[in-house]
Amino acid sequence: MDPWYALSEIRKHGTDRTWWRKRFLTLVVSRYFSGLGRPDADPVIETEWDHLIILDACRFDLFKAVYDDNQLPGTLNRRKSVQSGTPGFLAENFGDGTFHDIVYVTGNPYVDTNLPDGTFHAVESVWEDGWDDERQTVLPETMAKRTLDVAERYPDKRIISHFIQPHAPFVGDVRLGQRETFAIREHAMGNEGSVQRHRTPFEMLESGEASHEQVWEAYRSNLEFAWPAVNRLLAELPGLTAVTSDHGNAMGERAWPFPVRVYGHPLGVLIPALTDVPWLTNTNGPRKEITPEPPQSVDTEIDERTTERLQTLGYAE
């Protein structure tokens, strides 16, 4: 790192405790977890499934709380994700290989921007053409409908359906935070600098602007918002369907063995709040017969609007 740049950053942010916490998490904690402190994990690509439903940023205890009140068909277990953020989850599961037996249906633009072309047989970019402008997200029912359509068009492929919920923006019955723009999508569309990045609910919790109870209630409501769509997929998809998450969200848990508290889902911080995720499996009839085939041509264009759509989710500055 350029020492003059580091000095200028310290002069600019030196009294900001949040800035120091984030630097410590990036420079110390994440390096510890990438080395000696790395826990065992369960890569999704090494598990059995015909269809995989990913609920973005859904920690296990949140899923279990909603499941206890409104059970889904199937058997619920806990698994350990490989990473604490979507970019790392995608890179560590899919970044070093080709998976031409998979069609990836995604509301999250990182699938398009962070993985090489040809990684999957096909990518269905719902974030691009299935966007809800009013709520600045891809609605769960849109994801369910597109997933069922893709499963019908590709009966001999494994299908991944990557929902945005319960990741912010929180647009369920209990809402929290601003939703004018969706950062990840805008970044992916190339609209850099054209929108303001608003504070996430977890940043509001960190600053004391929102309470733990307020954030948890809105976080849970966002998962409940997706619940009927997940239930529909479990009922209608044939074969073995699994429901999981790429990572969780921290709400002030400590990054043991360090005393620093963690909020949101900083990459590389592999604590249970961020890596303990659900693994629910349900079988409808016989397993699918899967046939790998060369990837279809990619026609998703990463233009100026994509950057803004990434910024709204809170990943891109």
Rank of each mutant, 00 (worst) to 15 (best):
Y5G: 05
A6N: 12
A6Q: 14
S8T: 03
E9I: 00
R11L: 11
H13P: 00
H13I: 00
T15F: 02
T15W: 00
W19D: 07
W20H: 07
R23P: 00
V29F: 05
F33S: 07
F33M: 02
G35W: 07
G37C: 09
P43N: 04
V44M: 00
V44G: 00
E46F: 01
D50H: 05
I54D: 00
L55Y: 02
A57T: 14
C58G: 09
A65T: 05
Y67K: 01
P73H: 14
N77I: 03
R79M: 14
Q83P: 00
F89T: 04
G97L: 01
Y104R: 10
P109A: 15
V111A: 12
T113N: 10
T119P: 08
V126C: 10
V126K: 03
W127L: 01
W127I: 02
E128P: 01
D129K: 12
D129V: 08
E134W: 00
L139N: 05
P140Y: 02
T142R: 09
E152F: 12
R153F: 11
Y154E: 14
P155D: 13
P155W: 14
I160L: 12
S161H: 09
H162F: 11
I164Q: 13
P166K: 13
P166N: 08
H167P: 05
A168H: 09
F170T: 05
V174R: 12
R175N: 04
G177R: 08
Q178E: 04
H187Y: 13
H187N: 02
M189R: 11
M189K: 10
N191Y: 08
G193K: 12
Q196V: 03
R197Y: 05
H198A: 10
T200H: 09
P201E: 03
E203T: 11
L205N: 04
E206H: 00
G208A: 08
W216N: 04
E224Y: 01
A226M: 06
P228M: 05
A229C: 12
N231Q: 14
N231A: 15
L233G: 07
E253A: 13
R254D: 11
A255L: 04
F258P: 06
P272R: 10
D276T: 05
P278T: 02
W279K: 03
T281F: 02
P286V: 11
E289Q: 12
P294D: 15
P294C: 13
V298S: 15
V298C: 14
V298N: 15
D303N: 15
E304R: 15
R305H: 08
Y315D: 14
A316L: 15
